[in-house]
Design a protein around this nucleic acid. Structure first.
Lengths: 215, 215
DNA sequence: AATTAATCGGTAAAAAATTACTGAATTATG
DNA sequence: CATAATTCAGTAATTTTTTACCGATTAATT
Protein backbone atom coordinates (compact mmCIF):
# COMPACT_ATOMS: atom_id res chain seq x y z
CA UNK A 1 0.00 0.00 0.00
CA UNK A 2 1.85 3.02 -1.28
CA UNK A 3 0.87 6.46 -0.13
CA UNK A 4 2.08 8.41 -3.11
CA UNK A 5 -1.08 8.71 -5.11
CA UNK A 6 -1.07 10.80 -8.24
CA UNK A 7 -3.64 13.49 -8.71
CA UNK A 8 -5.41 11.45 -11.35
CA UNK A 9 -5.55 8.48 -9.06
CA UNK A 10 -6.93 10.60 -6.28
CA UNK A 11 -9.66 11.77 -8.61
CA UNK A 12 -10.64 8.20 -9.37
CA UNK A 13 -10.76 6.99 -5.79
CA UNK A 14 -14.13 8.53 -4.94
CA UNK A 15 -15.60 6.88 -8.01
CA UNK A 16 -14.38 3.50 -6.88
CA UNK A 17 -15.70 4.11 -3.41
CA UNK A 18 -19.13 5.14 -4.66
CA UNK A 19 -19.31 2.04 -6.81
CA UNK A 20 -18.15 -0.25 -4.02
CA UNK A 21 -20.69 1.16 -1.62
CA UNK A 22 -23.42 0.61 -4.18
CA UNK A 23 -22.35 -2.96 -4.86
CA UNK A 24 -22.20 -3.69 -1.17
CA UNK A 25 -25.74 -2.35 -0.82
CA UNK A 26 -26.74 -4.89 -3.44
CA UNK A 27 -25.30 -7.74 -1.46
CA UNK A 28 -22.03 -8.27 -3.32
CA UNK A 29 -19.39 -9.81 -1.06
CA UNK A 30 -16.36 -10.10 -3.29
CA UNK A 31 -15.19 -7.87 -6.09
CA UNK A 32 -12.43 -8.18 -8.71
CA UNK A 33 -10.48 -5.41 -10.42
CA UNK A 34 -11.84 -6.62 -13.72
CA UNK A 35 -15.41 -6.13 -12.58
CA UNK A 36 -14.70 -2.67 -11.25
CA UNK A 37 -13.09 -1.75 -14.54
CA UNK A 38 -16.13 -2.98 -16.46
CA UNK A 39 -18.52 -1.04 -14.26
CA UNK A 40 -16.64 2.23 -14.57
CA UNK A 41 -15.50 1.82 -18.16
CA UNK A 42 -11.87 1.91 -17.16
CA UNK A 43 -8.88 -0.12 -18.19
CA UNK A 44 -8.54 -3.12 -15.91
CA UNK A 45 -4.79 -2.63 -15.50
CA UNK A 46 -5.39 0.90 -14.41
CA UNK A 47 -7.85 -0.26 -11.81
CA UNK A 48 -5.44 -2.92 -10.64
CA UNK A 49 -2.76 -0.30 -10.09
CA UNK A 50 -5.12 2.00 -8.26
CA UNK A 51 -6.45 -0.73 -6.01
CA UNK A 52 -2.98 -1.99 -5.28
CA UNK A 53 -2.01 1.49 -4.13
CA UNK A 54 -4.94 1.63 -1.74
CA UNK A 55 -5.51 -1.90 -0.52
CA UNK A 56 -3.74 -3.15 2.57
CA UNK A 57 -3.81 -6.80 1.53
CA UNK A 58 -3.55 -8.94 -1.59
CA UNK A 59 -6.52 -9.99 -3.63
CA UNK A 60 -7.56 -13.58 -3.87
CA UNK A 61 -7.19 -15.23 -7.30
CA UNK A 62 -10.42 -16.25 -8.97
CA UNK A 63 -12.34 -14.45 -6.28
CA UNK A 64 -11.26 -10.88 -5.88
CA UNK A 65 -11.30 -8.87 -2.71
CA UNK A 66 -13.58 -8.73 0.30
CA UNK A 67 -15.68 -5.70 -0.52
CA UNK A 68 -16.13 -4.64 3.09
CA UNK A 69 -12.41 -4.61 3.77
CA UNK A 70 -11.74 -2.83 0.50
CA UNK A 71 -14.23 -0.10 1.31
CA UNK A 72 -12.51 0.34 4.66
CA UNK A 73 -9.19 0.76 2.90
CA UNK A 74 -10.65 3.41 0.63
CA UNK A 75 -12.24 5.25 3.50
CA UNK A 76 -8.98 5.19 5.37
CA UNK A 77 -6.91 6.52 2.49
CA UNK A 78 -9.48 9.18 1.77
CA UNK A 79 -9.66 10.12 5.40
CA UNK A 80 -13.36 9.36 5.57
CA UNK A 81 -13.04 7.04 8.52
CA UNK A 82 -12.12 9.58 11.12
CA UNK A 83 -14.78 12.23 10.89
CA UNK A 84 -13.50 15.73 10.20
CA UNK A 85 -15.16 18.72 11.75
CA UNK A 86 -15.66 21.70 9.48
CA UNK A 87 -16.86 25.25 9.77
CA UNK A 88 -18.53 27.14 6.97
CA UNK A 89 -17.93 30.81 6.34
CA UNK A 90 -20.46 32.86 4.41
CA UNK A 91 -24.11 31.95 4.91
CA UNK A 92 -25.38 33.25 1.59
CA UNK A 93 -27.44 31.22 -0.83
CA UNK A 94 -24.74 28.67 -1.49
CA UNK A 95 -23.66 28.54 2.14
CA UNK A 96 -27.22 27.91 3.26
CA UNK A 97 -27.56 25.15 0.73
CA UNK A 98 -24.46 23.42 2.01
CA UNK A 99 -25.59 23.75 5.61
CA UNK A 100 -28.82 22.02 4.64
CA UNK A 101 -27.07 19.39 2.56
CA UNK A 102 -26.99 16.13 4.45
CA UNK A 103 -24.68 14.22 2.14
CA UNK A 104 -21.40 15.23 3.75
CA UNK A 105 -21.53 12.58 6.42
CA UNK A 106 -20.97 10.04 3.67
CA UNK A 107 -17.57 11.60 3.28
CA UNK A 108 -16.77 11.81 6.95
CA UNK A 109 -17.42 15.53 7.09
CA UNK A 110 -19.43 17.23 9.76
CA UNK A 111 -20.22 20.93 9.76
CA UNK A 112 -20.07 22.00 13.38
CA UNK A 113 -20.53 25.73 12.97
CA UNK A 114 -20.95 28.60 10.56
CA UNK A 115 -19.74 32.17 10.39
CA UNK A 116 -21.22 35.28 8.86
CA UNK A 117 -20.96 38.99 9.52
CA UNK A 118 -24.59 39.77 8.83
CA UNK A 119 -26.18 40.68 12.22
CA UNK A 120 -29.47 39.22 11.07
CA UNK A 121 -27.88 35.81 10.69
CA UNK A 122 -25.57 35.78 13.69
CA UNK A 123 -27.05 33.75 16.51
CA UNK A 124 -29.51 31.97 14.30
CA UNK A 125 -29.43 28.28 13.53
CA UNK A 126 -29.73 26.49 10.21
CA UNK A 127 -30.19 22.73 10.20
CA UNK A 128 -29.05 22.71 13.84
CA UNK A 129 -25.83 24.50 12.93
CA UNK A 130 -25.17 27.69 14.86
CA UNK A 131 -24.09 30.84 13.05
CA UNK A 132 -21.36 32.83 14.75
CA UNK A 133 -19.98 36.31 14.20
CA UNK A 134 -17.16 36.01 11.69
CA UNK A 135 -15.33 38.88 13.39
CA UNK A 136 -14.85 36.61 16.36
CA UNK A 137 -13.55 33.69 14.42
CA UNK A 138 -10.31 33.25 16.29
CA UNK A 139 -11.80 32.56 19.68
CA UNK A 140 -14.83 30.65 18.46
CA UNK A 141 -12.95 28.30 16.18
CA UNK A 142 -10.83 26.86 18.97
CA UNK A 143 -13.92 25.79 20.90
CA UNK A 144 -15.44 24.09 17.88
CA UNK A 145 -12.52 21.75 17.30
CA UNK A 146 -12.74 22.05 13.53
CA UNK A 147 -9.86 21.50 11.15
CA UNK A 148 -11.55 22.24 7.82
CA UNK A 149 -12.88 25.63 6.73
CA UNK A 150 -15.42 25.87 3.93
CA UNK A 151 -15.39 29.22 2.15
CA UNK A 152 -18.70 30.35 0.63
CA UNK A 153 -18.26 34.10 0.59
CA UNK A 154 -18.23 36.18 -2.61
CA UNK A 155 -14.98 36.16 -4.59
CA UNK A 156 -13.85 39.53 -3.32
CA UNK A 157 -13.75 38.36 0.28
CA UNK A 158 -12.42 34.85 -0.21
CA UNK A 159 -8.75 35.64 0.35
CA UNK A 160 -9.49 37.69 3.43
CA UNK A 161 -11.56 34.89 4.93
CA UNK A 162 -8.88 32.37 4.08
CA UNK A 163 -6.34 34.47 5.95
CA UNK A 164 -8.62 34.67 8.97
CA UNK A 165 -9.15 30.93 8.93
CA UNK A 166 -5.44 30.25 8.72
CA UNK A 167 -4.72 32.74 11.50
CA UNK A 168 -7.31 30.97 13.60
CA UNK A 169 -5.45 27.72 13.16
CA UNK A 170 -7.41 25.88 10.48
CA UNK A 171 -5.59 23.01 8.76
CA UNK A 172 -7.45 22.74 5.48
CA UNK A 173 -9.60 24.96 3.30
CA UNK A 174 -12.30 23.93 0.89
CA UNK A 175 -12.96 26.88 -1.34
CA UNK A 176 -16.34 27.29 -3.05
CA UNK A 177 -15.71 30.87 -4.12
CA UNK A 178 -14.98 31.13 -7.84
CA UNK A 179 -11.52 32.63 -7.36
CA UNK A 180 -7.98 31.61 -6.58
CA UNK A 181 -6.82 31.97 -3.03
CA UNK A 182 -3.33 31.59 -1.64
CA UNK A 183 -2.32 30.04 1.64
CA UNK A 184 1.01 29.13 3.18
CA UNK A 185 2.02 25.74 2.02
CA UNK A 186 1.36 23.73 5.17
CA UNK A 187 -2.32 24.58 4.84
CA UNK A 188 -4.22 22.22 2.58
CA UNK A 189 -6.34 23.81 -0.11
CA UNK A 190 -8.89 22.31 -2.44
CA UNK A 191 -11.03 24.30 -4.83
CA UNK A 192 -14.58 23.29 -5.55
CA UNK A 193 -14.46 24.73 -8.94
CA UNK A 194 -17.72 25.00 -10.82
CA UNK A 195 -15.94 26.80 -13.63
CA UNK A 196 -13.79 23.77 -14.35
CA UNK A 197 -16.68 21.39 -14.27
CA UNK A 198 -18.73 23.62 -16.52
CA UNK A 199 -15.79 24.13 -18.86
CA UNK A 200 -15.68 20.47 -19.75
CA UNK A 201 -19.31 20.53 -20.71
CA UNK A 202 -19.29 23.86 -22.41
CA UNK A 203 -16.28 23.06 -24.54
CA UNK A 204 -17.90 19.91 -25.80
CA UNK A 205 -21.01 21.83 -26.71
CA UNK A 206 -18.76 24.18 -28.65
CA UNK A 207 -17.18 21.26 -30.52
CA UNK A 208 -20.60 19.80 -31.26
CA UNK A 209 -21.85 23.09 -32.62
CA UNK A 210 -18.85 23.48 -34.89
CA UNK A 211 -19.26 19.96 -36.16
CA UNK A 212 -22.83 20.71 -37.12
CA UNK A 213 -21.68 23.76 -39.05
CA UNK A 214 -19.16 21.74 -41.00
CA UNK A 215 -21.74 19.28 -42.26
CA UNK B 1 -5.46 26.61 -33.09
CA UNK B 2 -6.03 22.93 -32.56
CA UNK B 3 -9.30 21.72 -31.17
CA UNK B 4 -8.08 18.55 -29.57
CA UNK B 5 -7.58 19.66 -26.03
CA UNK B 6 -6.61 17.11 -23.44
CA UNK B 7 -8.61 16.78 -20.28
CA UNK B 8 -5.84 18.33 -18.26
CA UNK B 9 -5.66 21.24 -20.60
CA UNK B 10 -9.38 21.74 -20.38
CA UNK B 11 -9.09 21.85 -16.63
CA UNK B 12 -6.50 24.58 -16.86
CA UNK B 13 -8.40 26.80 -19.29
CA UNK B 14 -10.84 28.22 -16.74
CA UNK B 15 -7.90 29.15 -14.54
CA UNK B 16 -6.29 31.07 -17.35
CA UNK B 17 -9.54 32.79 -18.14
CA UNK B 18 -10.13 33.82 -14.55
CA UNK B 19 -6.63 35.25 -14.36
CA UNK B 20 -6.92 37.07 -17.66
CA UNK B 21 -10.22 38.63 -16.66
CA UNK B 22 -8.66 39.82 -13.42
CA UNK B 23 -5.64 41.27 -15.16
CA UNK B 24 -7.85 43.03 -17.65
CA UNK B 25 -9.82 44.52 -14.76
CA UNK B 26 -6.54 45.91 -13.50
CA UNK B 27 -5.85 47.64 -16.76
CA UNK B 28 -3.33 45.23 -18.26
CA UNK B 29 -3.39 45.39 -22.07
CA UNK B 30 -0.81 42.81 -23.11
CA UNK B 31 0.12 39.54 -21.52
CA UNK B 32 2.91 37.03 -22.13
CA UNK B 33 2.89 33.30 -21.52
CA UNK B 34 5.76 33.74 -19.11
CA UNK B 35 3.73 36.14 -16.98
CA UNK B 36 0.75 33.83 -16.95
CA UNK B 37 2.98 30.96 -15.89
CA UNK B 38 4.41 33.03 -13.05
CA UNK B 39 0.98 34.07 -11.84
CA UNK B 40 -0.39 30.55 -11.79
CA UNK B 41 2.77 28.76 -10.71
CA UNK B 42 2.87 26.75 -13.90
CA UNK B 43 5.65 25.82 -16.25
CA UNK B 44 5.97 28.46 -18.96
CA UNK B 45 6.30 25.90 -21.72
CA UNK B 46 3.11 24.29 -20.57
CA UNK B 47 1.33 27.61 -20.70
CA UNK B 48 2.75 28.29 -24.14
CA UNK B 49 1.34 25.00 -25.39
CA UNK B 50 -2.03 25.64 -23.85
CA UNK B 51 -2.28 29.17 -25.20
CA UNK B 52 -1.16 28.04 -28.64
CA UNK B 53 -3.97 25.50 -28.68
CA UNK B 54 -6.53 28.17 -27.87
CA UNK B 55 -5.33 31.36 -29.47
CA UNK B 56 -6.34 32.20 -33.02
CA UNK B 57 -3.27 34.31 -33.72
CA UNK B 58 0.43 34.46 -32.90
CA UNK B 59 1.85 36.32 -29.98
CA UNK B 60 4.07 39.32 -30.45
CA UNK B 61 7.67 38.90 -29.30
CA UNK B 62 8.69 41.15 -26.44
CA UNK B 63 5.10 42.13 -25.95
CA UNK B 64 2.85 39.15 -25.58
CA UNK B 65 -0.77 38.97 -26.65
CA UNK B 66 -3.61 41.45 -26.65
CA UNK B 67 -5.44 40.44 -23.51
CA UNK B 68 -8.87 41.32 -24.86
CA UNK B 69 -8.46 39.17 -27.94
CA UNK B 70 -7.02 36.35 -25.88
CA UNK B 71 -9.97 36.40 -23.50
CA UNK B 72 -12.26 36.23 -26.52
CA UNK B 73 -10.42 33.17 -27.77
CA UNK B 74 -10.80 31.50 -24.40
CA UNK B 75 -14.46 32.33 -24.21
CA UNK B 76 -14.97 30.95 -27.66
CA UNK B 77 -13.20 27.67 -27.01
CA UNK B 78 -15.00 27.27 -23.71
CA UNK B 79 -18.29 28.09 -25.35
CA UNK B 80 -18.83 31.03 -23.05
CA UNK B 81 -19.40 33.48 -25.87
CA UNK B 82 -22.70 32.20 -27.13
CA UNK B 83 -24.88 32.08 -24.08
CA UNK B 84 -26.29 28.66 -23.29
CA UNK B 85 -29.74 28.34 -21.86
CA UNK B 86 -30.13 25.86 -19.05
CA UNK B 87 -32.94 24.39 -17.01
CA UNK B 88 -32.53 23.18 -13.46
CA UNK B 89 -34.32 20.11 -12.15
CA UNK B 90 -34.86 19.68 -8.44
CA UNK B 91 -35.54 22.82 -6.43
CA UNK B 92 -34.29 21.57 -3.09
CA UNK B 93 -31.72 23.33 -0.98
CA UNK B 94 -28.94 23.02 -3.50
CA UNK B 95 -31.22 23.76 -6.45
CA UNK B 96 -32.49 26.92 -4.77
CA UNK B 97 -28.95 28.01 -4.09
CA UNK B 98 -28.01 27.63 -7.71
CA UNK B 99 -31.10 29.48 -8.87
CA UNK B 100 -30.06 32.37 -6.63
CA UNK B 101 -26.44 32.19 -7.66
CA UNK B 102 -25.69 34.99 -10.06
CA UNK B 103 -22.21 33.92 -11.11
CA UNK B 104 -23.25 31.72 -14.00
CA UNK B 105 -23.51 34.56 -16.48
CA UNK B 106 -19.73 34.84 -16.23
CA UNK B 107 -19.62 31.45 -17.87
CA UNK B 108 -22.21 32.18 -20.49
CA UNK B 109 -24.85 30.19 -18.73
CA UNK B 110 -28.39 31.36 -18.19
CA UNK B 111 -30.96 29.41 -16.21
CA UNK B 112 -34.23 29.97 -18.03
CA UNK B 113 -36.46 27.67 -16.05
CA UNK B 114 -36.66 25.11 -13.26
CA UNK B 115 -38.56 21.89 -12.70
CA UNK B 116 -39.84 20.24 -9.57
CA UNK B 117 -42.65 17.86 -8.77
CA UNK B 118 -43.55 19.43 -5.45
CA UNK B 119 -46.97 21.13 -5.95
CA UNK B 120 -46.03 23.81 -3.45
CA UNK B 121 -43.16 24.90 -5.65
CA UNK B 122 -44.74 24.53 -9.07
CA UNK B 123 -45.83 27.90 -10.41
CA UNK B 124 -43.67 29.84 -8.00
CA UNK B 125 -40.70 31.94 -9.01
CA UNK B 126 -37.21 32.09 -7.54
CA UNK B 127 -34.87 34.85 -8.62
CA UNK B 128 -37.21 35.50 -11.55
CA UNK B 129 -36.93 31.89 -12.68
CA UNK B 130 -40.22 30.08 -13.08
CA UNK B 131 -40.68 26.60 -11.61
CA UNK B 132 -42.55 24.16 -13.83
CA UNK B 133 -44.07 20.75 -13.20
CA UNK B 134 -41.36 18.19 -13.87
CA UNK B 135 -43.98 15.73 -15.11
CA UNK B 136 -44.55 18.03 -18.05
CA UNK B 137 -40.94 18.39 -18.95
CA UNK B 138 -41.20 17.28 -22.54
CA UNK B 139 -43.57 19.97 -23.70
CA UNK B 140 -42.21 22.75 -21.52
CA UNK B 141 -38.59 22.24 -22.43
CA UNK B 142 -39.14 22.86 -26.11
CA UNK B 143 -40.61 26.30 -25.44
CA UNK B 144 -37.69 27.28 -23.20
CA UNK B 145 -35.05 26.70 -25.84
CA UNK B 146 -32.57 25.23 -23.38
CA UNK B 147 -29.78 22.85 -24.27
CA UNK B 148 -28.28 22.20 -20.84
CA UNK B 149 -30.00 20.40 -17.98
CA UNK B 150 -28.75 20.85 -14.42
CA UNK B 151 -29.63 17.96 -12.15
CA UNK B 152 -30.07 18.79 -8.46
CA UNK B 153 -32.37 16.00 -7.33
CA UNK B 154 -31.41 13.39 -4.71
CA UNK B 155 -29.18 10.57 -5.91
CA UNK B 156 -31.97 8.08 -6.20
CA UNK B 157 -33.81 10.14 -8.82
CA UNK B 158 -30.86 11.43 -10.80
CA UNK B 159 -30.87 8.72 -13.47
CA UNK B 160 -34.59 8.99 -13.97
CA UNK B 161 -34.38 12.76 -14.39
CA UNK B 162 -31.47 12.37 -16.78
CA UNK B 163 -33.56 10.03 -18.91
CA UNK B 164 -36.43 12.51 -18.94
CA UNK B 165 -34.11 15.32 -19.96
CA UNK B 166 -32.61 13.28 -22.76
CA UNK B 167 -36.03 12.19 -23.97
CA UNK B 168 -37.05 15.83 -23.98
CA UNK B 169 -34.17 16.62 -26.28
CA UNK B 170 -31.52 18.11 -24.01
CA UNK B 171 -27.96 18.18 -25.40
CA UNK B 172 -25.89 18.33 -22.25
CA UNK B 173 -26.28 17.45 -18.59
CA UNK B 174 -24.54 18.98 -15.62
CA UNK B 175 -24.98 16.62 -12.74
CA UNK B 176 -24.84 17.89 -9.17
CA UNK B 177 -26.25 14.71 -7.66
CA UNK B 178 -23.55 12.66 -5.94
CA UNK B 179 -24.04 9.61 -8.13
CA UNK B 180 -23.07 8.28 -11.51
CA UNK B 181 -25.57 8.63 -14.28
CA UNK B 182 -25.50 7.15 -17.74
CA UNK B 183 -26.61 8.74 -20.96
CA UNK B 184 -26.32 7.76 -24.60
CA UNK B 185 -23.04 8.91 -25.95
CA UNK B 186 -24.17 11.86 -28.04
CA UNK B 187 -25.37 13.56 -24.88
CA UNK B 188 -22.67 15.51 -23.08
CA UNK B 189 -22.27 14.82 -19.40
CA UNK B 190 -20.26 16.59 -16.76
CA UNK B 191 -20.34 15.75 -13.10
CA UNK B 192 -20.03 18.45 -10.50
CA UNK B 193 -18.44 16.13 -8.10
CA UNK B 194 -18.04 17.34 -4.57
CA UNK B 195 -16.73 13.95 -3.55
CA UNK B 196 -13.72 14.30 -5.82
CA UNK B 197 -12.94 17.77 -4.65
CA UNK B 198 -13.25 16.77 -1.05
CA UNK B 199 -11.17 13.65 -1.61
CA UNK B 200 -8.14 15.68 -2.56
CA UNK B 201 -8.38 17.62 0.66
CA UNK B 202 -9.30 14.73 2.86
CA UNK B 203 -6.51 12.51 1.62
CA UNK B 204 -3.95 15.19 2.35
CA UNK B 205 -5.29 15.58 5.85
CA UNK B 206 -4.85 11.82 6.22
CA UNK B 207 -1.23 12.04 5.08
CA UNK B 208 -0.60 14.94 7.44
CA UNK B 209 -2.06 13.04 10.36
CA UNK B 210 0.05 9.98 9.66
CA UNK B 211 3.16 12.11 9.39
CA UNK B 212 2.46 13.53 12.82
CA UNK B 213 2.14 10.05 14.23
CA UNK B 214 5.49 9.04 12.82
CA UNK B 215 7.31 11.87 14.53
C1' DA C 1 19.32 53.30 -36.81
C1' DA C 2 21.65 49.76 -34.20
C1' DT C 3 21.62 47.17 -30.09
C1' DT C 4 19.49 44.80 -26.41
C1' DA C 5 16.27 42.15 -24.13
C1' DA C 6 12.38 39.47 -24.23
C1' DT C 7 9.10 36.68 -26.53
C1' DC C 8 7.47 33.39 -29.82
C1' DG C 9 6.85 28.81 -32.25
C1' DG C 10 8.56 24.44 -33.22
C1' DT C 11 11.20 20.41 -32.14
C1' DA C 12 13.50 17.36 -28.98
C1' DA C 13 14.05 15.19 -24.52
C1' DA C 14 12.32 13.68 -20.14
C1' DA C 15 8.88 12.26 -17.05
C1' DA C 16 4.55 10.42 -15.96
C1' DA C 17 0.58 7.82 -16.82
C1' DT C 18 -1.66 4.17 -19.08
C1' DT C 19 -1.93 -0.21 -21.34
C1' DA C 20 -0.25 -4.81 -22.37
C1' DC C 21 1.88 -9.02 -21.18
C1' DT C 22 3.45 -13.05 -18.41
C1' DG C 23 3.76 -16.60 -15.05
C1' DA C 24 2.13 -18.09 -10.53
C1' DA C 25 -1.63 -18.98 -7.46
C1' DT C 26 -6.24 -20.33 -6.16
C1' DT C 27 -11.04 -21.36 -6.41
C1' DA C 28 -14.61 -23.66 -8.67
C1' DT C 29 -16.08 -27.39 -11.76
C1' DG C 30 -16.35 -31.80 -13.80
C1' DC D 1 -8.81 -35.42 -7.46
C1' DA D 2 -7.45 -33.36 -11.72
C1' DT D 3 -8.53 -29.79 -14.89
C1' DA D 4 -10.01 -25.48 -16.36
C1' DA D 5 -11.01 -20.85 -15.70
C1' DT D 6 -9.97 -16.54 -13.28
C1' DT D 7 -7.47 -13.55 -10.92
C1' DC D 8 -3.45 -11.64 -9.08
C1' DA D 9 1.21 -9.18 -8.95
C1' DG D 10 5.05 -7.59 -11.20
C1' DT D 11 7.49 -6.13 -15.27
C1' DA D 12 7.69 -4.31 -19.90
C1' DA D 13 5.98 -1.49 -23.69
C1' DT D 14 3.39 2.24 -25.22
C1' DT D 15 1.25 6.49 -25.13
C1' DT D 16 0.49 10.94 -23.30
C1' DT D 17 1.91 14.88 -20.89
C1' DT D 18 5.25 17.94 -19.37
C1' DT D 19 9.65 20.22 -19.57
C1' DA D 20 13.71 21.94 -21.97
C1' DC D 21 16.08 23.86 -25.71
C1' DC D 22 17.03 26.82 -29.84
C1' DG D 23 16.88 29.94 -33.69
C1' DA D 24 13.94 33.66 -35.43
C1' DT D 25 11.38 37.78 -34.65
C1' DT D 26 10.07 42.16 -32.75
C1' DA D 27 9.36 46.11 -29.43
C1' DA D 28 11.87 49.13 -26.56
C1' DT D 29 16.14 51.64 -25.55
C1' DT D 30 20.19 54.19 -26.48
Amino acid sequence: MSKNLSKNQLRRLPEYLTLLRNLKQNGIKYISCQTIADCLNLNKELVRKDIAAVSSYDGVPNKGRDIVLLIKDFEKILGYDSSHNAVLVGVGSLGKALLCYDGFSTYGLKIVGAFDRNPELIGRTINDIHIYDSRRMFGTLSTLNANIGIICVPSGFAQEVANDLVDSGIEAIWNFAPTKIEVKKDVILSNMDMATSLAVLSHQLYLKKNKRKEN
